[in-house]
Amino acid sequence: MFTQLSKSISDPAFLIAVFVGIAVFATLFTLMPSLAGNTLKTRMKTVALERDELRAKQRARLAAEADKRRRGLREEQSVGMKQIVERLDLRRALADEATVAKLRLAGFRGQNPLTKFLFFRLVLPFVGFALAAAYVFLLGGLPKQPAFVKLFVCILFAYAGFYAPVLYVSNRASKRKASIQKAWPDALDLMLICVESGMSIEAAMRKVADEIGAQSVELAEEFILTNAELSFLQERRQAYENLANRTGLESVKGVAQALIQAERYGTPIATALRVLANESREMRMNEAEKKAAALPPKLTVPMILFFLPVLFCVILGPAGIQVSERGIFGDKKESSSN
């Protein structure tokens, strides 16, 4: 075997074949990256295509929602609701400027949402009273209570039905404000970048509305509506004031005042937006710190109710088991000795 191996090593043809094989392998190993192409360009192209696809989907969704809201504002009100509200003059009795402002804060604009709001405030008390009366008197609910208690329960349900639309609008407004407040600093940063790049305030709002829609649809809708008002209203100041009134946020009011002053006195908008963006981020950080500081008092009761009993069981459980075992064995020993 060794003689054959030595003959193969000393054979020139075998050595040439080995060197050729090594050379071919080295050549292929060297040329493989160039043959595979530029992976960075391929990955960047894939990311760009995915980003364009996501942006197109987001724009289509925002356009569909805007079209749906626009159709909802343009559609005719329900004839029955409108006649009932106008015949009973509910707008004078149940609605004022504060009610309209609350509906606007919740994202309901126009006369149709106001008509529905007043109609449900009229109808829901009777519905609540009827359901409570059917449960109490017909189905035998609260059998041990006297009649005046049952009647009082029915009145409570009617009272809850009267204020149910108000609670719904307040909840919707608070959620909308929270969504806008969360995305507002990022929107200011995007607007600052657009303004510093040479875009007008209308083009900047339109661009920010396209980009911020993935984070807050409500804020994107407000920017689109403000952009439309800047184009159609006689005074641009009114468009900025409407933006502040529709959102109800102090940070948005500050930005609106800064834009109004920039329009009136010709001051640079970029400087004001930079300062206001920093303030908005600081306010958001302060809110987060407040929530973090409020956690220990909130966790006190759950810790007392859930954590401490388990902790006591873990600590005192083995000792209790040992004491019980010693007590049993001690009794057995005493009985055996006796």
Rank of each mutant, 00 (worst) to 15 (best):
71 R>I: 12
182 K>V: 08
206 R>Y: 05
254 G>D: 13
141 G>H: 01
56 A>Y: 08
124 L>W: 08
233 L>I: 06
301 V>S: 10
178 A>C: 10
255 V>N: 00
135 Y>K: 06
188 L>R: 02
212 I>G: 01
219 L>A: 04
328 I>L: 13
217 V>F: 13
201 I>H: 00
96 D>V: 12
20 V>A: 06
279 E>S: 11
133 A>T: 15
108 F>L: 10
21 G>W: 09
105 L>I: 07
222 E>K: 02
338 N>L: 14
198 G>A: 05
84 I>P: 04
216 S>A: 14
207 K>S: 12
227 N>L: 07
5 L>P: 01
185 P>S: 07
206 R>M: 07
299 L>R: 04
31 L>D: 02
96 D>G: 15
81 M>W: 13
245 N>A: 12
233 L>K: 14
255 V>P: 00
7 K>M: 13
71 R>P: 01
125 P>H: 11
326 R>P: 04
80 G>R: 09
155 I>K: 02
227 N>C: 07
279 E>C: 06
121 R>H: 03
217 V>A: 12
8 S>Q: 10
162 F>G: 03
250 E>M: 11
306 F>I: 09
314 V>W: 13
191 M>V: 03
123 V>A: 10
179 S>N: 13
70 R>N: 14
265 Y>A: 12
106 A>P: 00
31 L>H: 03
82 K>Q: 10
269 I>C: 02
35 L>Q: 07
